[in-house]
C-alpha cells in the first residue's frame, strides 16, 4: 500500500495497554520532562522512557532508524544555539573557554545538554505510542475520553478511506500519465512547477466530494448521529496493568512537580 503505518504488530506489555493509558503516558512524560531542568532526573526519565522500547519489543533496527538522527540533530542544535550565550541560564556564570568574542560558560553547556535530554526523554514515549497503537483503536479511545463521538468517528472515516484514496491516487496519476503528464517532471516555469500537483489533486478532491455525499447518505440511512451518544462494537478494557501503569505515572508526575516546587528549583550544575 502507498501509505503504510509505522504500527508494528505484536503482543507485548505495551501493546496490551489501553490506548488511554498510552496517551496518558505521552502526556505524563511531557509534563515530567518540562517541569524540570535537572539532568539527573531527566536522565532517569530518559532511561525509563527508553526502557519502553524493549518492553514493546520494538526491533532495534527501527529504534536506531528513529533515534540516531534525532540524537544528532537535537544535540547539535542544542549546543550550537545555546552554548554561545553564556548567561542563558542566569547569573552568575563561569567561563570555561574564550576565543575572541566567543565565550562559552559551563552553565550554558550544562543548559544545552539539559535541554537536549529533556527532548530525548519525551521522544521514546511518543514513538512507542505510535508503534504499538493500531490507528483503528484511536476512535474508540477518543470517544471514551468523552470527545464527542462524531469527532471520534472522523478518525474512523479517515482510516477506512485511506486505502481507497491511495488507490484513487494511483488511478488518477496513471490517467494523467497516459496524457503525457509526469508529476515529478513538471513543465513550465516556477508557477508551472508549483501547480504540478493540480492535474492529480483536482480530480481526486472533486471525486472525493462526490463520494462524501454518497457516504453521508449511507450513514444517515443507518442512523448516524440520531442520539447524543452511541455504543461501540469494539471495547477498550482498563485492566489491572493499566491501573498500575497509570498510578506509577501519576506518582512520577506529582514527584516531579513537587521537586520543582520545593527542591530543584533551577538548573542543576554539577560542581
Amino acid at each position: 500500500m502507498l501509505v503504510s503505518f509505522k504500527y508494528i504488530h505484536g503482543d507485548s506489555l505495551i501493546h496490551r495497554l489501553d490506548v488511554r493509558t498510552k496517551l496518558f503516558m505521552v502526556f505524563a512524560y511531557l509534563v515530567m520532562a518540562l517541569s524540570l531542568l535537572d539532568m539527573r532526573v531527566l536522565a532517569i526519565l530518559f532511561v525509563s522512557s527508553a526502557m519502553l522500547w524493549p518492553l514493546a519489543k520494538t526491533p532495534m533496527k527501527e529504534v536506531g532508524k528513529l533515534l540516531i538522527p534525532m540524537l544528532i540533530f537535537i544535540a547539535f542544535f542544542s549546543f550550537a544555539t545555546n552554548a554561545f550565550y553564556p548567561g542563558i541560564a542566569g547569573k552568575p556564570y563561569h567561563i570555561v573557554y574564550q576565543w575572541g568574542w566567543i565565550k562559552i560558560s559551563l552553565e550554558a553547556l550544562i543548559y544545552s545538554a539539559t535541554v537536549a535530554l529533556r527532548y530525548l526523554a519525551i521522544f521514546p514515549a511518543a514513538t512507542v505510542f505510535i508503534m504499538t497503537t493500531h490507528p483503528t483503536k484511536m476512535s474508540v479511545a477518543l470517544a471514551k475520553l468523552k470527545i464527542p463521538y462524531k469527532l471520534a468517528y472522523v478518525m474512523n472515516i479517515a482510516l477506512r478511506y485511506l486505502p481507497t484514496l491511495a488507490l484513487d491516487y494511483e488511478i488518477i496519476k496513471n490517467a494523467q500519465r497516459a496524457r503525457g503528464f509526469e508529476m515529478d517532471r513538471p513543465q513550465g516555469g516556477l508557477v508551472g512547477r508549483l501547480k504540478a500537483a493540480l492535474p492529480v489533486m483536482i480530480p481526486m478532491v472533486m471525486d472525493s466530494i462526490n463520494r462524501a455525499e454518497l457516504i453521508a447518505d449511507a450513514m444517515d440511512l443507518r442512523c448516524f448521529g440520531v442520539y447524543k451518544d452511541r455504543t461501540w462494537y469494539h471495547d477498550l478494557k482498563f485492566t489491572k496493568t493499566d491501573y498500575i501503569v497509570c498510578t506509577i505515572l501519576l506518582i512520577g508526575v506529582i514527584t516531579c512537580i513537587l521537586l520543582r516546587l520545593f527542591v530543584l528549583k533551577r538548573l542543576w550544575v554539577p560542581v
Binding site: 484513487d168 488518477i172 490517467a175 492535474p199 480530480p203 472533486m206 462526490n210
Partner: peptide
Amino acid sequence: FQNPNHMLF
C-alpha cells in the same frame, strides 16, 4: 478511463 472524474481538471 472508466470514471471521467479521474481525469478532468
